[in-house]
Nucleic acid binder design. Structure first.
Lengths: 153, 153
DNA sequence: TTTCATGCAAATAGTTTGCATCAAC
DNA sequence: GTTGATGCAAACTATTTGCATGAAA
């Protein structure tokens, strides 16, 4: 996952401030630290990883606050969480266009892909079964290129 | 989810016994109770639901043993577990043909569907990204027919 | 009679929450 | 000054594990 450009991170941080203002919620230093660190991330981060990065950056935030801020980021639409069945959730900035995930069984790395035709197909399938689709989740698990090359496949 | 025919349940129970024998593992009463109850299920059961059904049937088994037996059932290929993001796992007998799930956001009910073309497509997508696909997971979340009729959609 | 499963209770791990204190406004 | 956030520690929940006892082979 390529990190967002610095200017884009700044723009999204601005949107987060607006979101907080619109809800009359204080714009606090810990909130901005968490948001800044997640929005600038180059990977799907766990809360633990996020905390480590905040610590390394000399901007420590407690796990409780990290969780609470992530909730706000999700509610505002600026971030998404995923459960890849690893026992904890991982977070990423909301992508410009919705995408799906390839997850490596070996190293846990995540690759994103989009597939328009597939996205159009799924609501139709839901409809055939009487469901009104709201969202879907598609994950492919396997061995990534790197692990296959390393003979771990 | 329609329950399996009684004869089919019996056949699968036989396969479970064979699996245990082949591993020199004791064929115990609690193991057969758990397997029998899950294989005859008409839905995707949580461990709690499974325990309730066992209790109701006058065949109580402790949660620890239920978890341990489910592990064996998964290892033997006779059962599958799913995490639908509800905070706990749900189990079902392994289907004859792999399928995907529609999950109702409201009532939690699960509907299965198959889609051959889609199943053929996914490994190709993985390959395009350098992954060797091993398995995939496709879930559509929305409102089921019943909940929509009840005006809960 | 040897081996391994069972049930209980304690441990685990990610996440959530209550509460006293502190920062934002 | 008022409101609500923070950090800590305790609580919570699904699941796993250690151990004394009991059942299968």
């Amino acid at each position: 996952m390529a990190p967002l450009a610095t200017t884009e991170v700044a723009r999204l941080l601005g949107r987060f401030r607006e979101y907080l203002e619109s809800r009359r919620l204080p714009i606090t230093r810990p909130r901005l630290r968490v948001a800044g660190q997640l929005l600038a991330a180059d990977a799907h981060l766990s809360v633990e990883e996020l905390q480590q990065r905040l610590d390394s950056a000399g901007e420590p935030v407690s796990p409780a606050t990290i969780y609470r801020t992530l909730e706000l980021l999700e509610a505002s639409g600026l971030a998404q969480s995923h459960d890849f069945g690893q026992g904890y959730r991982r977070y990423e900035p909301s992508p410009a266009s919705e995408h799906h995930h390839l997850i490596c069984d070996r190293c846990g790395c995540v690759t994103e892909f989009t597939h328009e035709r597939l996205d159009r197909l799924l609501p139709l399938i839901a409809d055939e079964h009487g469901y009104q689709a709201r969202r879907h989740r598609l994950e492919i698990y396997g061995t990534c290129r790197g692990c296959r090359r390393a003979g771990l496949g």
